[in-house]
């Protein structure tokens, strides 16, 4: 009997836990609010913390390196020490590792917010919501992101930028909601060079691409190392994305529901590039994949039968 009660108790906990994820998050917010304030509410404390993050220091040295007056340093550092953010050994203060990790999280979040505010005109006219893509909760530290906008001098700027990146050396990944205007050229280039290309498209498009690959198969010119055609996971946001080892180009869908073909975000930085590879990985469905080998062996099979 006790066992049954225990089982029911466990079950009720699980159910409550599932429904109340808002409550769980509210608990986190309430639990850590004071501690977070301790980190963010004082520029002086932030400066002391980033300084100690770099190297342990004495009060005197901190005073010298930051220029903050002595009494202010000692009162703030006492506060940091009593809250387990720094520890004192002999005369030196050390940043505790767990506090350092929390601090870095806050600094990176500030950069994320600055990025969002910088691009709010573009982002808020486009769709980004997708709860199934986890990497959206882990935006990278982004600097040097550009918004390329086609204009009457160069109406194809965005499309050209996408295409140029598709022809990059090394591993290239693309999410293609539609065919490139120069699709035939791009395909021929990929097949006749030592390319490593993966593309995610809708089902009807992937069938078309596969049929065009078949038509272009020619043993003499086939140098492609890897060509994979994947289908998207169910219900993805509509983006166009091309990522190569040193560049990421991303276009979004307008709020009205059509892809914006004249505007793309571009970055050459390492972290946005790595982020984009991960975005691609989460977006594609690895079970629905057609490789170049699949296409070759299928068309070999057909010609054998003739």
């Amino acid at each position: 009997m006790y066992y049954n009660i225990f089982q029911r108790y466990i079950k009720s906990i699980q159910v409550v836990f599932e429904i109340n994820s808002i409550e769980e998050d509210f608990n986190i917010i309430e639990e850590f609010e004071e501690e977070i304030k301790l980190y963010v509410n004082s520029d002086i404390r932030l400066e002391i913390m980033t300084s100690l993050f770099n190297s342990p220091s004495t009060l005197k040295l901190l005073h010298k390196s930051t220029g903050i007056n002595y009494t202010s340093i000692s009162s703030n550092i006492a506060k940091l020490e009593s809250n387990n953010i720094v520890k004192k050994e002999k005369d030196y203060y050390y940043m505790r590792r767990q506090a350092a990790i929390k601090l870095v999280n806050l600094l990176l979040l500030e950069h994320n917010l600055l990025f969002l505010y910088d691009f709010e005109n573009f982002l808020n006219n486009h769709q980004v919501k997708n709860d199934n893509i986890e990497i959206l909760s882990l935006l990278p530290y982004m600097k040097n992101v550009d918004l390329l906008q086609a204009n009457n001098i160069n109406p194809d700027l965005a499309v050209e930028t996408i295409q140029e990146n598709m022809l990059s050396k090394g591993s290239v990944k693309a999410i293609a909601p539609m065919l490139q205007p120069n699709f035939e050229e791009v395909l021929e280039y990929i097949l006749t060079h030592k390319s490593d290309f993966e593309v995610i498209t809708a089902k009807n498009l992937s069938e078309y691409i596969i049929s065009r690959v078949k038509d272009n198969l020619n043993d003499e010119t086939l140098k492609c190392k890897r060509l994979n055609i994947l289908q998207a996971n169910s219900d993805p946001i509509k983006v166009s994305l091309v990522v190569s080892h040193n560049k990421v180009v991303m276009g979004l869908e307008r709020r009205e529901g059509n892809l914006n073909k004249s505007c793309v975000l571009v970055s050459h930085e390492e972290l946005p590039v790595a982020w984009a590879y991960n975005f691609f990985k989460e977006y594609g469905c690895e079970e629905k994949i057609t490789t170049l080998e699949d296409i070759v062996s299928e068309s070999d099979g057909l010609s054998d039968g003739e």
């Binding site: 590792r97 767990q98 982002l123």
Partner: peptide, 30 residues
């Protein structure tokens, strides 16, 4: 939420989650 509001909220929740885990496993990190 707007698009920026959505991305901001998700990244904030990620940071709060990290906060909780770093507190829970502080020994490991220290």
């Amino acid at each position: 939420l707007t698009s920026t509001g959505y991305l901001a909220s998700r990244n904030i929740m990620n940071v709060l989650d990290n906060w909780r885990i770093v507190t829970k496993y502080y020994r490991c990190f220290n």
